[in-house]
Amino acid sequence: MTFFEVVFYAFSTLMVVAALGVVSARNPVHSVLFLVLTFFASSAIWLLLEAEFLAITLVLVYVGAVMVLFLFVVMMLDINVTRMREGLMRYAPFGIAIAILLIVQMVMVVGPEHFGLLAFPVPESHAADYSNTKELGRVLYTDYVYAFELASVILLVAIVAAITLTMRRRPNTRYQKPGAQMKVLKEDRLRIIKMKSETIEPENKQ
């Protein structure tokens, strides 16, 4: 077994174990952390395939941003584990049936006859100065530029939609207006009055 294979098997074992942890952990926060571990392991496997851009982006986007928000939400949920487990045995046969169906479908689509070693030859390894970021960028902005732009427009629409769905202005809330605060001058708030100095007569000092 070469060093390459050792690394591959180490990370794929880690990935499978972590993925099992995601679905079997009792605590949802642990599930999220297992999912982070799964992403890490898959990113390491991508690195083995010389896809360093995709590998690092996976960590950057999913681990660094998406999963943080996931964790944020899951941490705040008050989940009653016993109540969630009540119907487990009743729904188990149904769930198992669906799982088997999914597995069969996946084997049919990504099985060895379509994605096996024969269907895909070993990718040739590139020189040390080969930058797959550059290559990916070149393909994205030339051959697939319409698809790329379309995807970004769809994402933009999704962002706008999400914001309009969740944004509500409560009429009674008072907001700070930083612009107005910055524009305030001394003359607006402070009035200096000229007056003669006054002394109060001590009337009946004891």
């Binding site: 926060v29 952390l33 950057l60 660094g64 943080v68 964790l71 941490m75 080969y130 970021t133």
Partner: peptide, 25 residues
């Protein structure tokens, strides 16, 4: 001498927050 060094740094600096969140939880 990583080709995607900048990305690597971005990815790692974004990892630091996990320590804080997990510590809090």
């Amino acid at each position: 001498n990583l080709n995607a060094g900048l990305l690597y740094i971005l990815a790692l600096t974004s990892m630091g927050v996990y320590g804080v969140i997990i510590a809090g939880w």
